[in-house]
């Protein structure tokens, strides 16, 4: 319990740091980005909306500390301002309409990569120096060396344009009504294959190698020798004795890579014009839509912090040593 409270305290501090960063970035930057933004939107807004924006970005005469308190107050009320590029939709509804796609893409690819990567790692470590151990790691490291977006472009070119197997962009065919019918789900799945595949390809090597290395350390432990001496079946030793204990670091990195799920899919989403939150973040930056930029950044960070806290809770369940110390 004390461990969890400490972690919770840490996440709260991290959250506060992010809000503070968000608050000070547009205010302290050279070149006055906020004025540029205002020049762009001045004509299409009502005076009270402009006043609200001015407050959001500190173009008021209030002292800085009061602006800061107002800002934090607004955040906790879920008020992140109004999007400029999608005027007059509030930032929060722009985000909530798009985060689902990012979660779908991120979760699918992360789960496939983790399960497959760890399995390969376990097998590679179990058969040291055999085919799987000598061919896959260098191959996957090489594939992982390619920039995400480049692999995505290559996949898009090969499977989308040349072979025409998969659609080129978007999350579902234009004009199709979202519904729970089989054809819609199949359509979404079809659009998901290429983006998810590229993420899996790039990230699987890290999982495999990480698992392989901890697994090698674990197989040197005495209880493995003991299990062998007892004459247990090899598969049972591999999964129930060695892999089970080697999993722990993988769970920690799982928490870390959740950040990639929400934020890192940005490049993939850009290449495939997938309507996720990362793609929207980039659009907001290019359209000088700072309220949306900040809102998305804060949402991503919050999601990552929450997910990590969840992983901590699971970790306490899995590793009794954490509970004792």
């Amino acid at each position: 319990m004390r461990f969890l409270l400490r972690r919770l305290g840490f996440y709260l501090i991290a959250f506060w740091a992010c809000i503070t960063l968000n608050f000070f970035l547009p205010r302290l930057m050279p070149g006055d980005p906020v004025s540029r933004m205002f020049a762009q939107v001045q004509n299409q807004m009502r005076p009270d909306q402009i006043a609200a924006l001015r407050q959001l970005f500190g173009l008021t005469n209030k002292p800085l500390w009061q602006q800061y308190l107002d800002y934090i107050g607004n955040i906790f009320r879920g008020d992140m301002g109004i999007s400029l590029s999608r005027f007059p939709t509030p930032v929060s509804s722009v985000i909530s309409s798009e985060i689902g796609w990012t979660l779908l893409l991120g979760a699918t690819s992360l789960i496939i990569a983790v399960v497959l990567g760890n399995l390969l790692g376990i097998l590679a470590a179990w058969r040291r120096g055999k085919f799987l151990d000598s061919v896959f790691p260098p191959l996957l490291v090489f594939v992982g060396s390619f920039p995400y977006f480049w692999l995505a472009m290559a996949a898009l070119y090969l499977f989308g344009i040349v072979l025409g197997w998969f659609p080129l962009n978007h999350a579902f065919t234009d004009g199709v009504e979202p519904s729970f019918s089989f054809s819609y789900v199949a359509d979404v799945a079809n659009h998901l294959v290429l983006p998810a595949l590229t993420i899996v390809l790039v990230s699987i090597g890290g999982w495999m190698l990480g698992m392989r290395n901890t697994m090698i350390a674990t197989t040197a432990e005495d209880y493995i020798t003991m299990a062998r001496a007892k004459g247990l079946r090899s598969g049972r030793i591999m999964f129930h004795y060695a892999a089970r204990n080697a999993m722990l670091p993988s769970i920690t990195s799982f928490g870390m890579s959740l950040g990639f799920v929400v934020g890192g899919a940005l490049l993939t989403e850009t290449v495939f014009a997938y309507p996720g939150i990362g793609y929207q973040l980039l659009n907001s930056v290019q359209g000088l839509d700072y309220p949306l930029t900040q809102g998305i950044f804060l949402t991503i960070t919050t999601a990552v912090l929450a997910a990590n806290f969840l992983v901590d809770i699971i970790y306490v369940r899995l590793d009794p040593r954490v509970r004792v110390s």
Binding site: C18, G259, G263, G264, G278, L281, V285, F297, L305
Partner: peptide
Amino acid sequence: LIPGLPLLVVLAAFL
């Protein structure tokens, strides 16, 4: 903990 790529994008947007 702060996701790197979004932070990268936000920082690059303001600098």
